[in-house]
Write a protein that binds this DNA or RNA. Structure first.
Lengths: 236, 236
DNA sequence: AGAAGTTGCTGTACGATGTACAAATACTGT
DNA sequence: ACAGTATTTGTACATCGTACAGCAACTTCT
């Protein structure tokens, strides 16, 4: 959602656009991680004095928020528009697209967790989720809870991945994309944590996308399933 | 897990303990949020020069990590020890206890998201989860995935709550505990997002703990349920 | 007991950060 | 042309993490 340039202002022409700042911030975020996305760095990248940024954004927090909104605005809502698909698939398409967009910019993800996500695009995402859930037959109150649960899962999943991948991102640029998950668990003292250690090797085989959709399927099944989980033990 | 004091060292007596630093950091975190938990602030609180902290921790990141570990170490594992309880309840007890411990220190929660959680206590938590899941009949690989899903849900949930509550924490100290969730959604433009707006009022009624266990029940049901969610639409 | 060796705290200092303030500049409407 | 206003810049300040060197305290060895 690009801001329409208002012609015929009073002072000198603006040397920048808000979007230029956002793009600079995003590229800095990608190259050097969250630490590199400083106001001064951004300003240097677009070729202005550090303070010039404050003409477009009141805060650094505002810049961060705008970057996050920018990313959330990139998700392809149409991917979940087909009402003939089962609701679970529509949500899965949305969740996968969102994950793809976000994990392309891990630095931005770690920033996203700091502040609240109450921007227009975040709301639109929530709205789309609720549409699908209500379409599927859920009453709005339950749809609201379910959409919140889905949001928690999707963002929590991505955030945890980025956090586990850690600062290795900027140290080893070849691991820019999320691919080698559970790396932190590969050095588990086997004596103290036998189960975790035994699972670590197999966990390493599950690339993150698999685990992501596995968990998503679980959550979706839980939303569609019976309300009380106290019943039978899991099978398989 | 307090570090045992090693007697008879070479130099002058240590004026501090690592735990003193951790407690100071935690109290600063509680009072003034993440911004207040600076090395210099911590040092001032315990009455030493800023650099003295680096005798005990190599980094600020190490201090943060230790604080997180300290909090994770406080969860009461015994609460889920009773093997006669249904597995879902054992996990629920654990999840509720964890949530209580963490949401008592929102500032620490927002710090926790930045780095990976690969400390001993985090591992112990994962191990406990896997124990319960394996006890319930799940095969270890599935238990590993399920425990990861649960961890994602629990921490994502808490992190999102803290983030939505936002920096209001330190501005209005009476809202120290997490209680007024979804506050950010109370000002939704009703025209553009009808479903979200309609749900916002009812959402406000669901205090966070309710939503938390609701979602947890969903996740647990999904873990115990059939593997493929593509089937029937949700009922109720 | 004295000397030597080691350790911990402090003082000082540097670079970097976010951002407030005032001056300078470039444009528009009258 | 002039006045007014919006934007950028220069400078400045407080604060941050932390590196370096010195001093002081304590243990160990002779």
């Amino acid at each position: 959602m690009t801001t329409t340039a208002k012609t015929s202002r009073r002072g000198p022409r603006r040397a920048l656009t808000g979007d230029e700042i956002l793009e600079a911030a995003l590229s800095l975020l990608d190259e050097g991680g969250p630490a590199a996305a400083s106001i001064r760095g951004i300003a240097a990248k677009v070729g202005v004095a550090p303070n010039a940024v404050y003409t477009y954004f009141p805060d650094k927090a505002a810049v961060v928020q705008a970057v996050v909104e920018h990313l959330l605005g990139q998700v392809n809502h149409a991917i979940a528009a087909d009402e003939n698909l089962p609701w679970t698939q529509r949500i899965e398409h949305l969740a996968l697209d969102l994950r793809e967009r976000l994990s392309a910019h891990p630095g931005a993800v770690s920033l996203m967790i700091g502040g609240p996500m109450d921007g227009a695009n975040a709301l639109a995402l929530n709205e789309r989720l609720m549409e699908i859930l209500v379409d599927s037959g859920l009453h709005p109150p339950d749809a609201a809870r379910a959409s919140y649960l889905l949001i928690v899962y999707v963002f929590g999943s991505i955030a945890l991945e980025v956090a586990e991948l850690g600062e290795a991102r900027q140290a080893r640029p070849e691991a820019d994309r999320i691919s080698e998950r559970r790396a932190g668990f590969s050095a588990i003292p086997a004596g103290r944590y036998p189960l975790s250690a035994a699972a670590a090797s197999t966990m390493a085989a599950y690339v993150s996308t698999e685990q992501y959709v596995w968990g998503l399927h679980r959550v979706l099944a839980g939303i569609g399933g019976p309300p009380n989980p106290a019943g039978p033990p899991p099978h398989r």
